[in-house]
Simulated assay, not measured.
Amino acid sequence: MTQLNININMEELTEAVLNSNITSMMKSMAVLVFNAYMEAERDEHIRASQYERTISRTDYRNGYYERDFTLSIGRLTLKVPRTRNGDFSTKLFKRYNRMDQAFVLSMVEAVINGVSTKKVSKIVEQLCGETVSKSFVSSAMKHLDPELKEFRERSLTGHTFRYVYFDAMYIKVREDHRVISKAVYIAQGVNDLNKREILGFKVSDQESKETWRSFLQDLRDRGLMQPKLVISDAHQGLKAAIQEVFVGAAWQRCTVHFLRNILDVMPKKDSEEQRQALRKIFRANTLQQALESRQAFEELTGGENRFSKALETLDSGFMDAMQYLQEPEVYHISLRTTNSLERVNREIRRREQVVSIFPNTDSAERLIGAVLMDIHEDWEKNRWTFLMKTGNPIVGRT
C-alpha cells in the first residue's frame, strides 16, 4: 500500500480557513483539518505516534471530547484529543479565546474550593473537556499567566497619550473564609495615533487616595507621560491622586455622573422644564453656549428654594465638567464622559456575574486581565480611530 506524505503549513492553512467565506462542504474539510492538526499536536506532546513503542514517550492517549468552535464562518464541532495525565492542551484555540480560558479557570478554581454549584461544575467540564482538578488549573495557568503578566507590566514609552480615562468597579472575592468587596481600577488612554489602549488595571482592597495614587504612579513608572486631559468621576481619592501624580494636567469631570448628582437633589415633582434646561447645559458645543444655558437654568430656578441644592451642586463642579470644550469639537462626545470605559467595565461584568464570587484575588486578576488584553488587541487591529461623531464611531480610518 502506498503511503502518502503531505507537508502542510498548518498556521497558514488555519488562517486561510478562518478568513474565508466557505460552504458547508468546506466547513467539513475545516473540521478534518483542525482535528488532524490537534492529533499531530498530541503526537508531538506524547513523542510517539499511535501504536508506536518508544522509550521517549511522555504520556498516553486518552480518547477525545467534543467541543464547539464558533468562528466567523460558523460553528464547528471538533474532536479534541486528551492524554492520560491531562497535561496536553491544544494551541488551536489559544489565539481566539484568552477570555474563555480565564473564565473557565475562574470557575474551575471556584469548583475546587467548593464554592460553586453542580451546574457550574457541569459547565466547566463541557467547556474545557476535563474533570475539575488542581492539576488542570496549574497546567492552564502556566500558559496564561506569563502572557497576562507581560501585558500588565509592558512599557508605555512607545506612545504619548493625550487623553487618559480612569474608573473603578467592584467585585466580590473570597478571602480568609469571608466574602469581601474589592475595587478594580482600570486606565484607558488615547495615543498619538488616535487609538485607544488599555494602560493598566489593579485589584485593591479599597478605593482610596493612597491606592489610587499607587496605581497612577505605577503607570508613570512604566513610562506614561503627562496627559493633556484626564477624564474620571469625582471620587475624592482619585481626584486628589490625579492632582498629585499628573500635576498640570486638566481634569474633566464625567458629565454623566455630574448631571446625575444634580438631578438627585432636585425635586421630582413639577420640575420637568427645569430638568430639560439643566441637560441643555451639558449638550453645549462651546463654553459660551454652556454659560448661556447655565444662566437660563439659574433664571428658571433661582427664585425657588427647592432648587437651591441643585444650584449649589452645579456651581461647585461646573468648570470641571466643561474642560472638554477646550478640545476639538469632534472629540467632545468622547471626552465629556467615561462612557467608553464604562463599556469596557460591562464586558468584564458580563463574565464576572457568571463567576459571581471569585475564589481568590489571583483568579479575579486573571479573568479581568484576559478580558482587558483581548479588548486591547481588538483595538490594535481595528481600523477605526478614537474619533467619534454623535453617538457612533466615525467613518474614518487610521
Rank of each mutant, 00 (worst) to 15 (best):
Asn382Phe: 00
Ser356Gly: 02
Ser334Thr: 03
Gly396Trp: 08
Lys94Glu: 13
Glu327Thr: 04
Val137Asn: 06
Thr337Phe: 09
Val184Gln: 05
Arg279His: 06
Arg220Val: 15
Tyr51Pro: 00
Glu352Leu: 03
Asp176Cys: 07
Glu312His: 12
Val120Asn: 12
Glu299Leu: 12
Glu304Cys: 04
Asp145Trp: 03
Leu71Asp: 09
Ile55Ala: 15
His257Cys: 10
Val203Ser: 03
His45Gln: 08
Thr83Ala: 02
Asp270Asn: 14
Glu125Met: 13
Lys27Thr: 03
Ser106Lys: 01
Leu300Cys: 00
Gln326Gly: 12
Gly237Thr: 02
Ser214Leu: 12
His257Met: 10
Lys228Trp: 00
Thr301Trp: 00
Leu335His: 03
Ala168Leu: 02
Tyr170Gly: 00
Ala234Trp: 01
Gly391Glu: 01
Gln252Lys: 13
Val265Ser: 08
Thr160Ala: 04
Leu127Gly: 01
Val115Gln: 12
Thr117Asp: 11
Ile375Phe: 06
Glu44Pro: 03
Arg162His: 03
Lys172Gly: 11
Asp192Arg: 04
Leu127Cys: 06
Val256Glu: 01
Phe93Gly: 07
Thr131Cys: 04
Leu156Cys: 01
Asn285Met: 13
Lys239Met: 06
Val344Met: 06
Thr398Gly: 11
Ile180Cys: 08
Glu52Arg: 04
Lys381Arg: 13
Asn285Glu: 15
Arg253Asp: 02
Thr211Gly: 05
Arg397Gly: 00
Tyr165Glu: 09
Val256Tyr: 12
Val330Gln: 12
His235Met: 00
Glu175Gln: 14
Leu291Ile: 04
Val164Ile: 14
Val173Thr: 13
Val265Arg: 08
Thr58Met: 14
Glu153Asp: 15
Ser121Thr: 06
Val111Cys: 14
Gln217Val: 14
Trp379Phe: 11
Arg343Val: 12
Leu238Ser: 06
Gly189Thr: 06
Asn382His: 02
Arg174Pro: 14
Thr14Phe: 00
Val120Thr: 15
Ile171Glu: 05
Phe246Met: 05
Met225Asp: 09
Glu299Phe: 07
His235Arg: 00
Glu210Gly: 11
Glu298Ser: 08
Ile22Met: 15
Leu193Asp: 12
Glu327Gln: 15
Thr54Gln: 05
Val111Trp: 00
Ile242Arg: 01
Ser214Trp: 14
Thr255His: 03
Glu150Thr: 09
Ser89Pro: 00
Gly303Leu: 04
Lys122Gly: 09
Ala249Thr: 15
Ala16Met: 12
Leu13Glu: 06
Lys280Phe: 07
Arg397Cys: 04
Gln295Tyr: 02
Gln252Pro: 13
Leu219Gln: 11
Tyr60Ser: 15
Leu92Arg: 05
Pro227Tyr: 03
Thr157Phe: 01
Phe282Asn: 04
Thr23Gly: 09
Tyr37Lys: 12
Tyr37Leu: 15
Phe282Glu: 04
Ser28Asp: 14
Lys91Asp: 14
Gln276Ser: 12
Asp43Gly: 05
Gly396Glu: 12
Val111Gln: 06
Ile22Phe: 10
Met25Ile: 11
Ser214Gly: 08
Ser271Lys: 07
Met10His: 07
Thr54Tyr: 06
Phe201Lys: 02
Arg294His: 09
Val265Asn: 10
Arg260Gln: 13
Ser20Gln: 05
Leu263Arg: 10
His143Gly: 14
Asp233Gly: 02
Ser214Ile: 05
Val247Pro: 10
Arg346Pro: 01
Ile242Asp: 01
Leu148Trp: 07
His376Lys: 02
Asn194Ser: 10
